[in-house]
Amino acid sequence: MSTTLTAPTASRASRIDHLDQLEHRSVHLLREAYASFPHLAMLWSIGKDSTVLLWLARKAFFGHVPMPLVHIDTSFKIPEMIQYRDRLAAEWRLTVIYGQNEEALAAKQTFPDGNVDRLTCCGNLKTEALRRTLSGEGKRYRFDHKLGKYVVDTNTEPYTGVIVGARADEEGSRSKERYFSPRSGENNWNIADQPPEFWNQYATEFAPGTHVRIHPLLDWTELDIWEYIERERIPTVSLYYDQGKGERYRSLGCWPCTKSVTSDARNVQEIIVELKSGRFANIAERSGRAQDKDDGGGLESLRREGYM
């Protein structure tokens, strides 16, 4: 009864490096999500983070992605992002679903149309579109691999588990996130009263009418993401690289509100060198995203209401 358990063999074969460590934790979280939520979806913004997340899902499920990838199409995304989305959907046989706020778009309640400010536009085209797509109230368009195009999805079941690629180092409010973060029926995030999370045990139980956001990338940094993209050779959208004009995007969003940064990094290796050089050390990653600046806590206000 009192013996200490020690295995006979004890020398360590190889050290787990920090990318392995991050990968193992993310994979663990993805599998917990899959085991816990019968109606699970993963948000795919087409950006580098959620594409790494998609890759990690293929790691977790041994080459398969057994859940739909939900993309919120504001209609103002840079066209290349959509082409890239549909190319990967076909190549990797992904279940891709997109949703949008068709009413707001029809009524031109958008910032590019000049009728609302940036934050309201985000609220309409992202937060509200996301809420309605997740709940099933809004139309879901599913990529039909046989037809090679999007068709209206017949499944309107609310998603009760939603996997999101948020990282803690991106912005202040994201550093407060849990791996498993319960949201109310209205998508609201109660920051002051979050469940405790310890010992690989997460808030996988949830009351009817609520859902849980799952954040497998919380511990990753921007540099980790790029180093992992390089190591795994993950395909990324070319907007991240300088195409000869001396500029590239560091964070992708809608074209009217996303600015490029001055950079001549033409590929993943050059981005890693650039990040390590400290050139951007004093510039926030989302500094090119205009909606973050419109009030004291732009992104935080958006996130409380359900923004990714």
Binding site: Q201, Y202, E205
Partner: peptide, 12 residues
């Protein structure tokens, strides 16, 4: 281990 009470992890 953790103990769950009414959907919430309430103890370890």
């Amino acid at each position: 281990f953790v103990l769950v009470d009414n959907f919430n992890i309430s103890g370890g």
